[in-house]
Design a protein around this nucleic acid. Sequence first.
DNA 1: CAAGTATGTGGTACCGGTTACACATACAAT
DNA 2: ATTGTATGTGTAACCGGTACCACATACTTG
Lengths: 337, 337
Amino acid sequence: MATIRDVAKLAGVSVATISRYLNKSGYVNVETEQKIKKAIEALNYEPNAVARGLAGKKTNTIALILPDISNPFFPELARAVEDVASMYGYTVILCNSDDEGVKEKSYIEVLKKKYIDGIIFASNTLDSADVEQMTKKGIPVVCLDRVPPKQSCSVVRSKNREGAKLAVEHLLGMGCRKIAHIYGPQEFITAKERLAGYEESVKHLDWYSPTFMIQGDFRIEGGIRATELLMERHPDVDAIFAGNDLMAVGALKALHRMGVQVPGQVAVCGFDGIGMTEITQPELTTVAQPIYEMGALVSRILIKKIEGTLEADQTYELDVALVPRESTLRRNGHESS
Amino acid sequence: MATIRDVAKLAGVSVATISRYLNKSGYVNVETEQKIKKAIEALNYEPNAVARGLAGKKTNTIALILPDISNPFFPELARAVEDVASMYGYTVILCNSDDEGVKEKSYIEVLKKKYIDGIIFASNTLDSADVEQMTKKGIPVVCLDRVPPKQSCSVVRSKNREGAKLAVEHLLGMGCRKIAHIYGPQEFITAKERLAGYEESVKHLDWYSPTFMIQGDFRIEGGIRATELLMERHPDVDAIFAGNDLMAVGALKALHRMGVQVPGQVAVCGFDGIGMTEITQPELTTVAQPIYEMGALVSRILIKKIEGTLEADQTYELDVALVPRESTLRRNGHESS
DNA sequence: CAAGTATGTGGTACCGGTTACACATACAAT
DNA sequence: ATTGTATGTGTAACCGGTACCACATACTTG
């Protein structure tokens, strides 16, 4: 591998000139430029990114810390992040935290040592102190969907509360009368907000009772168990709004096992808009987040922060959209109990 | 951030000694060791990975090049790769090639400049010349499921041909009489081998005809179209073996739309064992590859190659297993045509 | 007692870039 | 003629480590 000094020698100029040429910083004579071009060509020279990183403290690398890439929500997000990053010349490091603080911290340690340019957090646990510490040290951070208590970094999120309301309204519009909610772990702000949105939408209804709200775990298994519990407790529910799609899938599975017709007897609505919702039978109505857009946005924001094009930290709230599918399809408003 | 020179000064020794201490290379007196420890503690010193990379040409970073992380086969794989990598102190860079040679090459360029320690290819296009060129330059490469023509690197794959036979035998055992196959793009060796396995298993049967083999695209959409075509051409098939799970899902969808009962009228079997197979209705029988194990293995092999613990390139063939589920469940052997 | 070996440490070149600064020249404005 | 500004280039320190080599001691061993 040729080095910048080889190029300098061959072109008959100094390394400084080569460097200026490469980075388009400072003056370079047109003729000199030609000579340099030829030399680079001849030597097949490629500047060494590590040396650049050391000298310039910039590695063109960002990290994406998420709970688990095998969670179906994240692949699309990761794809978006990487697409945008590579468009801007950045490389993406993947980290699975399992939502464990210890793992997150240890990743951060390593990433700092590697002069990573910035971090995207789609993982939960770290508090605003951690984030502040990062930004203090000059490492830009952008959070996704999980807000540190005090606003200490840019955040991209979507309208969970509104989404939950959309879901409830849709179900009501479909003629459902008793709508239960399976909510996710309350450490997750998304779970909390969706629950809040649900509660707000239904608390004024005459059938309302806290017993219609059941805890799940944001995974299929938890959706199954919650549904079993729910149907035992309230055989009269005619709709389930799950806090995410995985639990909705669980609900579908559980109902199917119990021989309950979906949407005939019970309608089911999820949240997130992951691809899975299109392959269930019946296909799942869901409140879709613009997952790809979120990833692309979060990536773009991070890069802007890195490159100094972005001033203040900001929160970006993206719209969600109800995607009506078969799992909530009812002919008219009067099939319920 | 403290540097090694700061530590040296505080501990009253030279940087060489600090370096020896850090890397456990060469002698360090026990007392000196104590002093160094204290100094490191006091300064909160963390060795700079980039500087190390430059000096030692080792970055403790590997790259995973795959077609698309949003393809449901890959998240689990990526997770396994990253788990093992992080266990050994390596960091993983994610690259989506979309199976396009241009993108692959451009990733490789960047990765080389970054002194990446090794690459895992789960992407298709590059030929053995490319791979050889890499290994010549000292960058270890391990391929997954996609074999370069000439063995020029270690390969992890699974028994596609045998898997296809398992599938056919299973379907025959379930009493199916006319088994069709939707095969994937023949650029993929996996598609080719599965098709070959199918053909071998059925060609001696009296109903055998090439018209039972239909091209798909390894995605849901292609599975749907292939199934439509197939059912039109052969309304008498009673089983579909799809070359991967996504196409099997497509088959399921298409059959459902046509009002064909699964498994009653047509049994469906997939290949891969992705999570999706458990959420379809009916749940999908599939020939499962040990996806996580494959990822873990490929990662472990790469790291061994990097660290020189591994001598010769080798091909690892992993077993597949038929996972019988509802989509092929038939009471007895005589429901067919 | 001389030579050999294990232990312990420091000096410094090097990895391959970036960049501050000094210096040189050309041309325009005062 | 003098000052100023834009253009163009080179020297060398620096980023923060690694590692080769020289050198100093302390014990063995023949």
